[in-house]
């Protein structure tokens, strides 16, 4: 088992996820400077100076056969064989990483071995990149920055949604009013957005409210959409005064539709409305008789398990 310099049991999940989620290929440099086996160490020394690198992979095609490091060059200068070819003096006993490995591997390799860089091979054993600890540091910094931003946003969100707690908005929806269809849902979406609710939660609320709103437009004699906000949840109620759904079970079946050709030509009536609402809602109830239909759906604003 490779060692990594943090405790993998008690460290924050976000950090652990990061070092397992990020792959070597996400971090490595792919802009490679290489040399052939016939290249002299002198030429390699010039390339290193010009390209500002401290180690050069020696390749035949895409196959890695060795590495010449700054140490090898110093040795060559010291011992007087700087004009000789790379193949005679390169390091052949190489430690390589695979591009699909999590960066936790790379971190532990840097810990275990004294090398400053590792060549990266793909599953066809072709050289695809080089990785240095600097590559890891800078990528980790960017990723940690993003994660912390996300965390800060989430903490802020909890307090923001307090502010809209208790708010109730009622929108009147007219039968066949396609002109204004979507207004209520757009208002609900804007309200959640201004309260800083996470985008994937807003999307669920938007889907539920839009489907319910369109149902009122397309199928009912008119009704209202009510949005109620509390710190942890929002509840969307669609209530109409008829004509009622003849078969509620069927209406909850994807693809079942009573919509007219005209409605279908507008892109509605796919028979996905109520199934869509039910699938995005954390809680869903429907009651219908000839005097009207009431659908209530609840969406949690801060679910503990992030599901997308």
């Amino acid at each position: 088992m490779q060692e990594i310099p943090i405790n993998t049991i008690t460290s924050p999940n976000v950090i652990l996820e990061l070092i397992y989620r990020l792959k070597v290929k996400d971090v490595m440099t792919t802009d490679l400077v290489t040399a052939g086996k016939e290249t002299t160490l002198r030429q390699i020394q010039y390339i290193m100076r010009e390209k500002q690198v401290t180690g050069l992979p020696i390749v035949v095609g895409k196959r890695l056969i060795g590495i010449v490091s700054m140490d090898d060059i110093i040795q060559a200068l010291d011992k007087g064989y700087i004009e000789e070819k790379a193949q005679d003096h390169m390091t052949r006993n190489l430690i390589v990483l695979e591009d699909d490995m999590p960066i936790s591997f790379a971190i532990s390799y840097f810990d275990r071995f004294s090398y400053h860089r590792f060549p990266v091979l793909n599953k066809h054993k072709e050289l695809v990149g080089m990785i240095t600890s600097r590559d890891i540091t800078s990528t980790l910094l960017v990723e940690i920055n993003r994660e912390i931003e996300e965390l800060e946003k989430r903490t802020r969100t909890t307090s923001l949604s307090e502010e809209m707690s208790g708010e109730i908005h009622t929108y009147t929806i007219m039968k066949n009013d396609f002109e204004n269809a979507g207004y209520a849902s757009t208002e609900i979406k804007k309200r959640l957005k201004s309260a800083g609710i996470a985008p994937h939660i807003i999307r669920r609320a938007a889907i539920a409210s839009y489907e319910l709103e369109m149902n009122l437009v397309v199928h009912s004699d008119g009704g209202e959409l009510i949005a109620e906000y509390s710190p942890q949840t929002m509840q969307i109620t669609a209530r109409d005064s008829g004509p009622g759904i003849s078969d509620v079970e069927a209406a909850l079946t994807p693809g079942w539709s009573t919509a007219s050709e005209w409605i279908r030509s507008l892109g509605f009536g796919a028979g996905m409305g109520l199934p869509n609402v039910r699938s995005v809602a954390d809680d869903f109830t429907i009651e219908s008789n000839r005097n009207g239909t009431t659908v209530v759906c609840t969406i949690e604003l801060h679910p503990k398990q992030e599901e997308r």
Binding site: M214, L266, M272
Partner: peptide
């Protein structure tokens, strides 16, 4: 897709 409800979901 052309069915907006399908798109929505």
């Amino acid at each position: 897709g052309d069915l907006l409800s399908d798109v929505m979901g």
